[in-house]
Design a protein around this nucleic acid. Structure first.
Length: 567
DNA sequence: GCCGTTTTCGGCCCGACTGTTTTCAGTCG
C-alpha cells in the first residue's frame, strides 16, 4: 500500500509547480500520480523488476523520483520546494474558489502561508484590495475557511477501509489470534474516519503486539504495550490495536464502535434499568452479567440489535426500544449499477470490458452513462456518437451472456435548466441521468429550479450526485432539498446515492430525509474503471446509514420491474 | 515532464461560469 504515499508526494509536487506558474509539468505529475494510485500491484514490485518507465505517464525523471521515495521514504526535490515556499498548500487549496494563482498572489502580497493567515487578512479586508479580488471573493473565502478547517485530519472511508481490511486479514493469519474486528467509525462506515481501531483476542498478547508493530506497512511505532499498541502506517494513518479478553470481546467491541453519543444514551438506558454498562460489559449490583455478544447486551437492555451503521444517536435508540428499526438493505441486495463510463467519454475501458467486469462482480444489468457534449474535458459525446454507441450496445447485448447493458447517458443540466441533449435522442435511451457540472455557484433558487426543471423533463430518470458535494473538497450546492425530494417523488425521478469515495452523494442524512419524504433512490458507482465497481459497497453503506430498506432502492429490482419504472 | 502508426520537438481533452473586469483571468470539472 505504498502506492498511495507515492501518489500523494507526486500530487504535492504538482501543487507546488502550479504555484510556480508551471503549466504542463503539474499535469505530468498528476497524471503519473493517478497511474500509481490506481495500480493493482505494489509499486515496489514494479520497481524491483525495473519496469517503472513502462507505466503510462512515467518517464525517466519521475521514475527516478519514485525510486527515491521507495528507498528513503521521502523526496529531496519536494523537501527543497517546501523550504523555498513554506506554504500549507493542501489546506489552502481546500478553500473554495482559491487556486494556485490566488495562493501565490496572497503569499507575495500579504505573506499568507496558512488558513490562519488567510482568515486574518480576510477579516481585515486586506484581500479585497488586491488586484482581481473583490468584496464577494473575500466574503466567500471567509465562508469556506471553516469548511476547509473542519475537514483536515480525517481520511475518506473509501481510502481507509481497504487498508483496515488488509490489517485485519494479516492479523487473522496469525495462529495465535482468535478473533479480529475493526471497530470505531470504520465499522459504522462513516464517510470520513480518524484512525483504524482494531480489537483482537489472543492468549499470546506479546507475540501479536510484536507482529503488529513490525509490519511492513508501519512507518513508526507510537506506543507498544501488552494490551494496546499504536502505530503510524505508511499510508499516513494511525492504527490502534487492542488485545481483549475473549469473554469481553463483544462488550468492548460495542464500546469501541461508538458512536460516543450512542454509547452515552445506551448507558443511560442501562442505569434506568438498574444496570451499568461499560466497556467490560453489562453489570448488575457490581456483578458482570454473563452476556457475551452485542445482541445479548442489546436484548437485556430491552432493545433490538442496532446495526453499526445506525449507531449515531439519530433516533435509532428509540426505534430499537420500540422494535421499529428498519430492516436495512443488505450488502448483497443490488442487482445492477446504473452509472458508469466507458472509453466513449472519460472512462478507461471499453463497454465490453466494463460489462464483463460487472457480470463477474455479480450484477445482472448495468447502464453505460457516458458524458455528453457540454463536458468536453470528459470527452462528452456528440449526438452522432450517442447513436453510434447505442448500436454498439445492442450488438454487445447479443454477444455477451449473463448481463444486460442498458443504453444510458449522463446529460448536463445547463445553467438555464435545460439539458445539453435533445429530447428526441433522450427518449430512445433506456436510462437518462442528468446532473450539474457547471455553474454551481448560482443562488439557491436558481440551482434548485435547474434540478427541478430537469426532473420535470419526462425523459429524465435519475438525478446523479444531486448535491454536488465532494467530501473534504467542496460543499454541497445551496439547494432547497426538501422541495427537490418532493418533486422527485411526484415526477418519479430517482435520486442517486453516488458511491464514489469522495462523493457519497446523497449523504447518509439526506438519504434518510429523502426516504422519509417518500422518494425512491438508486445506488450507483460512477465507475470510470472496472476497478471502481467495488465502490458500490460504500454506496450501500451510505444507504444503510440513511436507514434505507431494500424496497427504497430501485436497483435491487430485477430488470423487468426496473424497466417498468423508467417507462 | 511525458509522449510520438504523420513528430525526438512541440504539443499537452477545453468550455462554462464567475467576478472582476471594460476584454479577461482564475477556477472548476
Amino acid at each position: 500500500m505504498k502506492n498511495q504515499k507515492v501518489a500523494k508526494i507526486l500530487n504535492e509536487i504538482a501543487n507546488f509547480l502550479e504555484i510556480k506558474g508551471d503549466k504542463y509539468r503539474p499535469r505530468a505529475y498528476r497524471y503519473a500520480a493517478r497511474t500509481v494510485e490506481s495500480l493493482s500491484r505494489d509499486i515496489k514490485d514494479i520497481k524491483k523488476q525495473d519496469k517503472l518507465e513502462e507505466l503510462p505517464g512515467i518517464g525517466k525523471n519521475i521514475a527516478q523520483k519514485i525510486e527515491e521515495i521507495i528507498d528513503t521514504g521521502s523526496l529531496r526535490y519536494l523537501e527543497d520546494m517546501k523550504k523555498e515556499l513554506s506554504i500549507e498548500l493542501k489546506s489552502l487549496l481546500a478553500v473554495e474558489g482559491i487556486g494556485p494563482k490566488t495562493i501565490k498572489l496572497l503569499y507575495d502580497e500579504l505573506g499568507v502561508k496558512n488558513l490562519d493567515d488567510l482568515e486574518r487578512m480576510a477579516k481585515r479586508h486586506r484581500i479585497r484590495r488586491l488586484k482581481g479580488m473583490g468584496e464577494k471573493t473575500e466574503k466567500r473565502i471567509l465562508e469556506s475557511i471553516e469548511f476547509a478547517r473542519k475537514n483536515s485530519g480525517r481520511n475518506l472511508l473509501g481510502y481507509t477501509l481497504p487498508i483496515a481490511e488488509n490489517l485485519k486479514n494479516e492479523l487473522m493469519l496469525l495462529k495465535v489470534v482468535d478473533r479480529v474486528e475493526i471497530a470505531g467509525s470504520i465499522r459504522r462506515r462513516k464517510e470520513t474516519v480518524g484512525d483504524i481501531d482494531i480489537l483482537v483476542t489472543t492468549n499470546k498478547a506479546q507475540e501479536v503486539m510484536n507482529f503488529f508493530t513490525s509490519m511492513e506497512n508501519v512507518e513508526n511505532v507510537i506506543s507498544k504495550g501488552k494490551t494496546k499498541s499504536s502505530v503510524i502506517l505508511k499510508d499516513n494513518i494511525e492504527s490502534d490495536l487492542r488485545v481483549v479478553d475473549n469473554k469481553l470481546f463483544e462488550a468492548t467491541l460495542l464500546y469501541f464502535t461508538g458512536s460516543k453519543e450512542t454509547n452515552i444514551e445506551m448507558r443511560k438506558i442501562a442505569i434506568k434499568k438498574g444496570l451499568k454498562l461499560n466497556d467490560y460489559g453489562l453489570f448488575k449490583g457490581g456483578k458482570r452479567l454473563n452476556l457475551n455478544t452485542e445482541k445479548e447486551i442489546f436484548q437485556r437492555l430491552g432493545m433490538e440489535f442496532i446495526e453499526p451503521e445506525l449507531r449515531e444517536n439519530r433516533g435509532e435508540i428509540e426505534a430499537a426500544m420500540e422494535g421499529k428499526l428498519p430492516e436495512l438493505i443488505g450488502y448483497d441486495d443490488l442487482r445492477g449499477d446504473l452509472q458508469m463510463h466507458s472509453q466513449w467519454s472519460d472512462g478507461y475501458y471499453s463497454i465490453e470490458e466494463m460489462a464483463i467486469a460487472a457480470r463477474d462482480w455479480g450484477h445482472d444489468y448495468i447502464a453505460i452513462t457516458d458524458h455528453t457534449g457540454l463536458l468536453q474535458i470528459a470527452g462528452g459525446m456528440s449526438e452522432e456518437e450517442i447513436m453510434a454507441q447505442t448500436k454498439e450496445i445492442e450488438q454487445l447485448n447479443d454477444k455477451i451472456d449473463g448481463i444486460k447493458i442498458l443504453k444510458g447517458i449522463e446529460a448536463n443540466i445547463k445553467s438555464n435548466g435545460e439539458l445539453d441533449v435533445e429530447d428526441g435522442i433522450l427518449k430512445d435511451l433506456d436510462v437518462v441521468m442528468a446532473s450539474i457540472h457547471s455553474g454551481f455557484r448560482q443562488d439557491k433558487e436558481k440551482l434548485t429550479n435547474r434540478i427541478i426543471s430537469a426532473m420535470e423533463n419526462e425523459n429524465v430518470n435519475i438525478i446523479a450526485h444531486p448535491t454536488g458535494r465532494k467530501i473534504q473538497e467542496r460543499r454541497a450546492y445551496d439547494l432547497d432539498l426538501q422541495k427537490i425530494f418532493e418533486v422527485s417523488r411526484e415526477t418519479n425521478t430517482f435520486l442517486e446515492i453516488n458511491s464514489y469515495p469522495n462523493r457519497l452523494d446523497l449523504s447518509d442524512i439526506n438519504v434518510k430525509r429523502a426516504i422519509e419524504t417518500g422518494c425512491k433512490l438508486v445506488i450507483n458507482t460512477d465507475s470510470h474503471k472496472k476497478e471502481h465497481l467495488k465502490y458500490i459497497k460504500l454506496g450501500i453503506a451510505t444507504a444503510r446509514r440513511g436507514w434505507a430498506k431494500k424496497g427504497d432502492i430501485i436497483n435491487t429490482l430485477p430488470l423487468r420491474r426496473l424497466n417498468k419504472l423508467f417507462n
